[in-house]
Design a protein around this nucleic acid. Structure first.
Length: 727
DNA sequence: GTGGCCTCTCTTTTT
DNA sequence: GAGAGGCCAC
């Protein structure tokens, strides 16, 4: 058999992982060490050499994008259709299992998947129906609590016996009410998908045995990002077998804040005693300077598995550090460098600007815009998350499942049709008292009478509208159903009337939704296997909308500069990377500095950011920054001090560049100053008059200075360099 | 039911 | 400083 195509391109460590006999395997793959490659080749090896049937392979990822890429690469490598393989996200696979075994999972056949904004609405409504003050019980916090419990596999009933404090007990009561509401409405949130899938296997021996037998090989990508329930689910599937192959990097675990348990990597070694660990440390991405610097930074974290990346390529350029005067100057500098990169023949798509928080993108966008440089910002609102789309989907859901309370509430008066808060309140009360859905409650309210004629008619019209939509769409193609709903619901009309600039765009989006329905390929949703549940096109379309909210954007092949957060940069690489806003309070973020665990996660984030760069890495920070509408004077990030000076070089601007002035505000504290000031030296400022340098510490660019301005009676002032003139 | 005003908050984000 | 959400008045 010819296996050269599978193993020839691999290094020794990679080959060892790919060709190892079936046994629990933990591949610790550093950044840029060929992680996906190993996974893809391992699967190819099993199919081609070990003779494992494609349909017996399970591969789990975290994002749809990663799943898609893996599928594509396997097809390419083996030149076969990867259709029979189960490749998907944890949520996608869990969803598939629940659809196939809805009954055993105690779910209605036509259950609907809620995204997190749907979930938040449900929580809010629940709080209102329980007469709880949202100020005291913030919906966001409740949502977070519920998801955190589910991520740990904990149900409300497990918590009921706990004698926590009053607050705790109330939370549990809300959690329980939430579970009941979801069950009644046939709604499943993201965390529930995972938890249910786990319970399905745990409580149904026949189902568990079937899948344990079915999946001869189980592969997991980004294992360091798994949470408790995901790992428990994996263990059930692979229990008593040696067929789990996980790939991860403890140094790139950056999702602890949403339940990821880095400890799963350590537990893995306990739970699978006959496991093998393979480390991939050769990096094929970055230059020596970048790698060595990144190694030094991450070495400051405790309790690592220990890895040290190396490369055969040369040292390359040192990392360039630029101390910007303020955020404007920072953006100016970055965009100028990008312009000269492009002038020298570089591609814009090889350039990325990476920041800690989305709010930072604006200044760069403005500068890019004024220089007419094409760019693309990642993140933000995605297609299926837009309000107008969610409204249309809610109508569609109601036609499919009238007891979907979340959807009912969303569109009962959108567009406005004269059903006010009072009517809605009555419906809610009936629903709550009789533990029935809003739909049923509305009917009951109508038949029991007592409503004003106007309100009654309006409500009746709404119920009829939904019924008509359902009847009329019988036998229609999916896209025709969507089209009908969009038109007859009055949504198009509503947005056409909306003269505010956004109206037109919303109409276009609704048309795009119809188009998406036309193009919707149910086979690609990977649900059409022999005995899969007999789902309607519509239900599959809706489920897909929740699970792949952003997949409509498609890949952008235009030559654009890429702007994104450090989190969304994971897994990507660029020739030229700008890591911006590297300041205390921003990166590491203010909230993470007190807690060592969170600080280490920030450091891993820094490591991720640095290792995105292939050839050139620029790090910038600003000495003054407008943040939350205030001027702040941050210190350079501690991570900068962790980079050995020999790998980094400070960029000095041409002397002729005049630095812009900034507003000076009286505050207490100190600032970064160059060392040209001396203690007792007198300084002046146009607005605050004359002052005296009272305190200096540090040296060079890291120096801090405190100045007392006497004339205006302000004791302490933070100023920036440009405001100071030496007398 | 809409518009205007006030207050509050202010990572990261996929599913 | 900006956006979101709540509240009140018309």
């Amino acid at each position: 058999m010819d296996v050269t195509s599978i193993i020839d391109s691999l290094n020794d460590a990679q080959r060892a992982a790919v060709t190892a006999p079936s046994q629990p395997m933990l591949v610790l793959a550093g950044a840029g060490s060929g992680k996906t490659r190993v996974l893809v080749h391992r699967i190819a090896w099993q199919i081609q050499v070990e003779g494992v049937p494609a349909h017996s392979i399970l591969a789990v990822t975290f994002t749809n994008k990663a799943a898609k890429e893996m599928r594509g690469r396997i097809e390419e490598l083996l030149n076969i259709s990867a259709q029979p393989l189960w490749i998907g996200t944890f949520h996608g696979i869990a969803h598939r299992l629940l659809r196939r075994h809805a009954k055993q999972a105690n779910l209605p056949e036509a259950f609907q998947v809620m995204d997190s904004s749907d979930q938040l609405r449900v929580v809010k409504r629940l709080l209102a129906s329980l007469n709880l003050d949202e100020a005291k019980w913030p919906a966001k916090q409740i949502q977070w609590y519920i998801n955190a419990q589910k991520d740990e596999g904990i149900r409300a009933k497990h918590l009921l016996s706990d004698n926590g404090d009053l607050f705790q007990r109330q939370m549990v009561i809300i959690y329980q009410a939430y579970e009941e509401l979801c069950n009644r409405s046939g709604l499943v949130d993201f965390a529930e998908l995972l938890l249910r899938a786990h319970e399905l296997l745990r409580d149904n021996e026949d189902v568990l045995e079937f899948y344990q037998h079915r999946f001869r090989q189980v592969h997991v990508d980004e294992f360091q990002d798994t949470n408790t329930i995901q790992y428990a689910w994996l263990r059930l599937l692979t229990q008593g077998k040696d067929n789990i192959f996980v790939v991860g990097d403890d140094d790139q675990s950056i999702y602890g804040w949403r339940g990821a348990k880095i400890e799963n990597i350590y537990s893995f070694q306990k739970h699978y005693p006959n496991h093998q660990v393979i480390k991939l440390e050769q990096n094929y991405r970055s230059t020596g300077n970048i790698l060595k610097a990144a190694n030094k930074v991450i070495a400051n974290n405790d309790g690592r598995m220990g890895k040290e990346l190396w490369t055969e390529s040369g040292d390359g350029e040192p990392i360039a550090l630029y101390a910007a005067f303020n955020e404007q100057d920072e953006a100016h500098f970055v965009v100028e460098r990008i312009r000269s990169w492009v002038n020298d023949g570089g591609l814009r798509s090889d350039v990325a600007i990476l920041y800690r928080s989305n709010a930072q993108s604006r200044q760069f966008e403005e500068k890019l815009m004024t220089t007419a440089t094409p760019y693309r910002v990642y993140g933000g609102l995605r297609f299926f998350e837009r309000a107008e789309i969610k409204n249309a989907l809610a109508y569609l859901r109601l036609t499919s499942n009238r007891h979907d309370d979340a959807s009912f509430e969303r569109v009962i008066n959108t567009p406005t049709r004269g059903i006010g808060a009072k009517t809605l309140e009555e419906i809610r009360n009936i629903a709550r008292d009789q533990a029935i859905s809003l739909w049923t409650a509305a009917i009951s309210l109508l038949t029991q009478g007592g409503m004003s004629a106007r309100a009654g008619n309006a409500l009746d019209a709404f119920l009829k509208l939904i019924k008509h939509l359902e009847q009329e769409s019988e036998g229609l193609e999916l896209f025709e159903k969507v089209q009908r709903v969009v038109e007859k619901s009055g949504l198009i009309e509503l947005y056409q009337k909306d003269k505010a600039d956004k109206g037109e765009e919303k109409v276009e989006n609704l048309e795009e939704l119809v188009n998406a329905a036309r193009l919707f390929d149910k086979a690609s949703v990977q649900m059409l296997e022999d005995n899969d549940a007999n789902l309607s096109d519509l239900d599959m379309f809706l489920a897909n909308a929740s699970l792949e909210a952003g997949d409509m954007q498609g890949d952008d092949f235009d030559d654009c500069v890429q702007l994104m957060t450090l989190h969304s940069a994971k897994g990507l690489e660029f020739k030229l990377v700008f890591l911006v806003g590297v300041e205390e309070g921003l990166f590491p973020s203010q909230q993470s500095v007190e807690d060592i665990g969170r600080l280490e996660e920030e450091r891993r984030l820094c490591y991720v950011g640095m290792t995105r760069a292939r050839e050139h890495l620029y790090i910038t920070y600003a000495e003054s920054r407008r943040l939350y509408g205030r001027e702040s004077y941050p210190r350079p990030s501690r991570f900068l001090r962790e980079i050995p000076p020999e790998h980094m070089q400070e960029v000095r601007l041409r002397a002729s560049v005049s630095r812009p002035a900034a507003v000076v505000k009286p505050r207490s504290g100190s600032i970064q100053m160059p060392s040209r000031y001396k203690l007792g030296q007198r300084v002046s400022h146009s607005k605050f008059g004359e002052g005296e340098v009272l305190q200096l510490e540090g040296e060079g660019a890291q120096e801090r200075i405190q100045i007392n301005f006497k004339q205006v009676g302000i004791k302490w002032l933070i100023v920036s360099m440009a405001q100071l003139e030496v007398l």
